[in-house]
Design a protein around this nucleic acid. Sequence first.
DNA 1: GATTTTCTGATTTACGTACATCAGATTTTC
DNA 2: GAAAATCTGATGTACGTAAATCAGAAAATC
Lengths: 356, 356
Amino acid sequence: MRPTVHDIAAAAGVSLATVDRVLNQRAGVRIVTREKVEQAIERIGYVRDVAAANLAKSRVYPFIFILPSGDNSFMRGLEAQVRAAIGRSSVERTDISVVTVPAFNAEALVAALDEARAASPAGVAVVAIDSPDVVAAVDRLAAARIPVVTLVSDLAGSARDHFAGVDNIAAGRTAASLMGRFLGGRSGPVAVLAGSMLVRDHRERLEGFRTVMTENFGGHALLPVIEGQDDPALVERLVGEALAASPEIAGIYSLGAGNRGLIAALKRGKNAAPVCVIAHELTPHTRAALNDGLIDVVLNQDAGHEVRSAIRVLKAKADGVAVIGAQERIRLDIFLKDNLPFEQGSNQEPAQGKAD
Amino acid sequence: MRPTVHDIAAAAGVSLATVDRVLNQRAGVRIVTREKVEQAIERIGYVRDVAAANLAKSRVYPFIFILPSGDNSFMRGLEAQVRAAIGRSSVERTDISVVTVPAFNAEALVAALDEARAASPAGVAVVAIDSPDVVAAVDRLAAARIPVVTLVSDLAGSARDHFAGVDNIAAGRTAASLMGRFLGGRSGPVAVLAGSMLVRDHRERLEGFRTVMTENFGGHALLPVIEGQDDPALVERLVGEALAASPEIAGIYSLGAGNRGLIAALKRGKNAAPVCVIAHELTPHTRAALNDGLIDVVLNQDAGHEVRSAIRVLKAKADGVAVIGAQERIRLDIFLKDNLPFEQGSNQEPAQGKAD
DNA sequence: GATTTTCTGATTTACGTACATCAGATTTTC
DNA sequence: GAAAATCTGATGTACGTAAATCAGAAAATC
């Protein structure tokens, strides 16, 4: 049987009340006594029973999720996963609220972060924009001892506790590696389509892609990056123009969102030579394009896993408990037509008619 | 606040004791009263607080994991993950014992399953061998109302509650798809290296691989399947012979274990034309070979995820609670040199010097 | 050495559920 | 309609922890 507070009291030769004071860092214990108790805890290997403690405290974990608003299937899918978590909140003792802010807008994000801090929740999860102001706002949360997890896009140099997302440099490298090998002997330049260089995940994917393409597949020139702002209409226009300007394009790497526009442009240019297309995030649109052969590979991060992981980590941080590292590593899914998972129930799917 | 047993009692107009009898399906409640209570539960949306219930019961979950013994890195890695879970058992209220049986030996597996049943645990996880006797033994467990989860290799037609492993048909299809595209214009036959056709996972991978190769890449003949019994020495000899007999081999798909032998054979045959190699399971050996360019792709299933998922599912089944389906889907990892995860601490790694 | 301040112990209630006991009520059986 | 069988209620204890109260002990202060 695992030791309890009573065992600590007996082992340390003090009362239950004193043990409680030490365990919950309440005042009113002399240093010597405190040390006696701490040694006893160490000695008998006591670990607090979090379930019992939460029961006694009637604890709930108020969490705030800050996500970009707008017409982005992946982000809406992410939001759907957060709402699914809200549906489990009574069982999981969470109290999650969702805040959406305009995409690629650091100012709005800072305001949301500061507002979140004012609510003093047990933790905050945020899809970060890479900017010094945002770093400062996150650091203010950390200073207020509120655990912060970055979701999808990380915030380097900040005091965030954890990043729940994929290794985006590796994602870019993988895309390049697959692109290069899928192209085989074929020649022709490769186009890169991004959303915005403001977010770290896009920058990192580009960096990884560039590195491997130039190192290993130098035969393919890289065309200038197309910034589509994750906007399907803009993307469609820009890709159409690029295909028209360079009909010899052999591959396209779409590292952001707005893939609905990409797919539309590809459909229109179907007559030309086959283009190897690698895109990110499995959405209804990319899934269909993969099945139709318009897209060759989809690199994906599982939004459900990211949300559940973020919640687990925030809970652990709030309780000052260790996490199982390997469990919280978000893996890069590589989907071909052949290993597409079966479609989830419609309740799990992003709303229809949305961009990519 | 979520409703409690007291709320049920009040809503149904009965006493706490009666609610308890209904909830824990104890005798001594008239059908009408039972229904009244059940309706009240339904109406107010009561969900049992499993944490509190477990506390009250001082519940522990005795689980038995049945794994193949022998010199197989993946299986030893799996066992290491089970032992890691044993290390967490006091926190997770589990009491896990590990039983190993000789690989590919249905009789021994049946004996182990029957022995497990005699211990009447709260659940059994087993790496299954596909045989009618094993199906019957699993069905006996199910008849004794002991939840069963198959690990890694499934057992079709049995009454197992859940399968914690990858979709092996999709894995084979994916391997074929990557193989075909990596080979590009190159010609030459493709060899398939399996462990044993006795286990379902190997059969399914082969099936998926065959299907896609013949459908989409018919230009590459498939050589007869090499059965290496997951034995590195045997594998090395057989692969060496195959390479000697057909020097024009363009690709090798290794869908089982014993990859140490494959790698040794590849190293010896290095002088010949480059061969596209796709193997299963990330072990120290395959990882090194991937980095050295001897292997092009490693398809992997995360043993840690599988073990943790099996435990979660067994717990849920034992408690009669629903699982989050998406969370328990084991994904097929596709590793190229470029997206290899950082090496885990040595405590997470399989023992050295073992075959994979 | 008396007084104040600071610690410590003992005890109680609570969280939500499980489980046992026993008296009393309601049905069933003949 | 009485005896037997079955059902129901009331109550208490337990699980491991949190949190509060209050009396008494020990230490610090002058």
